[in-house]
């Protein structure tokens, strides 16, 4: 089975998986040149921060967690053998850091919701941002829908949450998701299948779909 075509994920619209710039910077880092890490941080911090915010629904902790991701990546760079792309590798670290944080926090369905997500601090240069030029009542409705989506996401397991975010928000292919999460393609497909079904059930007023038997 082959995955979807490699997707653009960097803020500058390039394709990091095929961009030799990442590999060259990684090699310099592995040779001890810490300055080479700065462009990697600048390039991926927006993707990593957004992913953590989407996974945790928590702006304040996302800042610290994103810091932890890059520091762990720096420490692990000597062991990075470029068998996967740098962004897949750092996505994996992001997943592990976020997963550990969620496990420690013991966030379970309905237990916790951070309403700071209702007013996310989105950078001016963000590729995908909620509309801000809408009428106040539309804006309120949009914000309520955003909160409803966050509530629904929090009712998914961390595994299902991460897989649907990697697929629908980050646009990763099945293979890239499998590489990132270190799971098989079959597991990718089954988790995505059930995550979609459950979300369609939870968001049936906004995205109706066949929702019987949503969870195995």
């Amino acid at each position: 089975m082959t995955g979807l075509a490699t997707t653009d994920i960097a803020s500058d619209g390039s394709t990091p998986a095929q961009d030799p710039a990442d590999a060259a910077l990684v090699l310099r880092c592995q040779a001890g040149d810490s300055r080479a890490f700065e462009p990697l941080v600048n390039r991926y911090r927006g993707k990593i921060y957004a992913m953590i915010v989407n996974m945790t629904g928590n702006d304040a902790d996302a800042w610290d967690l994103a810091q932890e991701v890059f520091l762990k990546a720096w420490r692990a760079l000597p062991r990075f053998e470029a068998r996967s792309s740098f962004y897949t590798w750092i996505y994996r670290i992001t997943h592990n850091v976020t997963y550990d944080w969620l496990r420690k926090k013991k966030i379970s369905p309905g237990m916790e919701f951070d309403d700071t997500m209702a007013t996310p601090d989105i950078a001016a240069g963000a590729l995908t941002v909620p509309h801000s030029d809408e009428r106040p009542d539309d804006r309120l409705a949009n914000r309520e829908l955003g909160q409803t989506i966050q509530d629904a996401l929090k009712q998914l397991s961390p595994e299902h949450r991460s897989i649907i975010l990697l697929k629908e928000i980050d646009g990763l292919s099945y293979q890239e998701i499998a590489d990132t999460l270190e799971i098989t393609l079959g597991t990718v497909m089954s988790r995505l299948f059930y995550a979609r079904k459950k979300l369609q059930t939870l968001l049936q007023d906004y995205a109706p779909g066949r929702s019987e038997n949503p969870q195995p």
Partner: peptide
């Protein structure tokens, strides 16, 4: 589409320059 219209795929952390400087 519903998820993409409400969840960012890219969002700079607050004080992005400071974010990088802390790591460095």
């Amino acid at each position: 589409q519903l998820l993409r219209s409400h969840l960012p795929s890219h969002a700079e952390p607050p004080s992005a320059e400071f974010f990088t400087s802390q790591i460095m």
